[in-house]
Design a protein around this nucleic acid. Structure first.
Lengths: 102, 102
DNA sequence: GATATATGTAAGCACAGACTTACGCGTTGC
DNA sequence: GCAACGCGTAAGTCTGTGCTTACATATATC
């Protein structure tokens, strides 16, 4: 599952927000949700698989941290599309100007 | 459906890439996919509903354009999480420094 | 070593949604 | 006016996935 799919659900985006504020254990994260703990655990797994989070075993706990580079990567794609679009607009504008001139 | 969910599938992300390069008709877009034309049409509808694209009727064609602001909004969320994370790292670093000092 | 705690895994269910084919509707062109 | 075109909508299918409960595993605690 790719990054965009991973952050494509509200629950998982909420998890990202929580972990972005600092390292969290699975239990701490689960406490913020109405769904069952295993349900949250599965969301955590998909986020790790997508490279959005990182796990670290600490005794009987699992500490989840944000892998910010993954978010940056997604951001790059978004920016690329926006600059593509701006280029397209510029081209269009120049064409119109050329038409009016000629 | 929110923006992230809208761009959460590879097909729809591909559509965004196509339209980012310039205004496209439904048919032009559909030509780039292996799935049926109605299938593409449904993807277009969800992208419009999510505010990612804009439609304009032109005769019997429908011209789709990118609504770049929507992508910018998604980008803002990503950046916010990254800066949150950087703040958390800074706090952690300061705490460690304070511990070592004291 | 037995019990409790923190967590993941397994199995199953129900629903969303990504497809398909068939059809309808407006527009263009003869 | 009528055929062809461009496109969306309807209806149905099927798979993925977001949940659930039950169970397994590893660590801490006494």
């Amino acid at each position: 599952m790719d990054i965009f799919e991973a952050i494509g659900t509200p629950h998982r985006r909420r998890i990202v927000e929580l972990v972005a504020a600092g390292e969290r254990t699975a239990g701490e994260i689960a406490a913020h949700f109405d769904i069952s703990r295993p349900g949250v655990s599965q969301h955590l797994s998909t986020l790790v698989a997508a490279g959005v989070l990182t796990v670290r075993k600490a005794g009987r706990e699992r500490r989840y941290t944000l892998h910010a580079e993954a978010l940056a990567e997604a951001g790059s794609w978004l920016e690329a599309q926006q600059s593509r679009w701006n280029d397209a607009l510029d081209r269009l504008e120049r064409e119109i100007a050329a038409d009016e001139e000629g």
